[in-house]
Amino acid sequence: MKENKNNGLRVALIQSTLYWENPVANREMFQTKIDQIIAPVDIIVLPEMFTTGFSMSPGNIKKEEGLKTLDWMKNIAHSKNTAVVGSIIFYENDKYYNRLFFVKPNRTFETYDKRHTFTLAGEDKEYSSGKERLIVNYKGFSICPLVCYDLRFPVWSRNTENFDVLLYTANWPTPRINAWNALLKARAIENMVYCIGVNRIGEDKVGHKYSGHTSVYDPLGELLLLSEIEETVIVELFKNEINLVRKKFRFLDDRDGFSLLN
């Protein structure tokens, strides 16, 4: 796809190992990685539960850590003049959530609580499920951020609002990485969007291994980027390319209308 330098959105994707249930160590580690991003970017994306790993013991984390991480994200967004996105364990009103924060440079933020908690790991027993999808308007792009297991549910991901980007943060393990690759591509094609998946890498304390595969697909499902190592990668998205593809292939005009019942 041809590039247009006048309407790009530069997105930094950080694929990293994580310290198990250690928010302080993870914030320090990500601070170092973010400080090493020299080129200007518009968004920095971190993996799912980036301060703890995919822990099913939220009670092991001090309840105030969620607010501390939110403040940390606000400070980075402001100092780097970029949005910062990622999900964390968050405690509120006597409940735990796998909550994604989209924090903007002016320190304002929007939130999304993971809709599809991962029953295979018992996430549904420890974390409350979200009920509403989030669409963020940022620098001329409309972005729908979702979390990990949400990727398996095309109805929840369906592009009913004509958004431009589907963004998934994840802790997606190696044994099911083929599904990750296939579903990211499918979500891009069926929704005619850029589809981004940011995964972690390494092994956690309960023995799950992660091979990364942080990826970006264009609105026709072409792979733009794939990473299998611990690194920060930058991709640029172009609004005019979305418009050109949708004008040429008007597939979204034929999508089925529907309403979610619960």
Rank of each mutant, 00 (worst) to 15 (best):
R176H: 10
P154E: 13
W156H: 12
E123Y: 12
R107K: 13
L151T: 08
C148V: 09
R176M: 14
L134Y: 08
F141K: 04
A121P: 06
A121E: 13
V198Q: 08
L183G: 02
G130V: 12
L167V: 09
N159M: 15
A182W: 14
F109M: 07
K114V: 04
N191V: 10
V147I: 14
L184H: 07
N181T: 13
A188M: 02
V198K: 00
E126Q: 11
V103S: 01
A186W: 09
P175Y: 09
Y138R: 00
T111F: 03
C148D: 01
R187Q: 08
D124T: 15
N191M: 09
L167F: 05
C195T: 09
L167H: 02
K131G: 09
G130P: 04
R176F: 14
H116W: 11
V198R: 03
N137H: 10
N106P: 02
G140S: 06
N199A: 05
K114T: 11
A182D: 15
G130A: 07
V103L: 03
A182E: 15
E123K: 03
G122E: 14
E123I: 04
Y127S: 07
C148A: 02
E110S: 04
C144V: 15
D150S: 11
Y149S: 11
E132F: 07
A182H: 15
C195G: 13
P105M: 01
N162D: 11
L146E: 05
Y138D: 02
S157H: 04
N171T: 14
E110V: 00
C195F: 03
C144I: 15
N178P: 08
Y138S: 01
E126V: 13
R115W: 07
E123N: 14
K139D: 00
V155N: 05
L134V: 15
Y149F: 13
T174V: 11
M192E: 06
R115Q: 05
P175R: 00
E126P: 06
G197R: 10
K131I: 06
G197W: 14
L184Y: 06
T117F: 01
A186N: 08
K185M: 08
N171D: 07
T117H: 09
G122V: 13
R115N: 10
R115Y: 07
N181S: 13
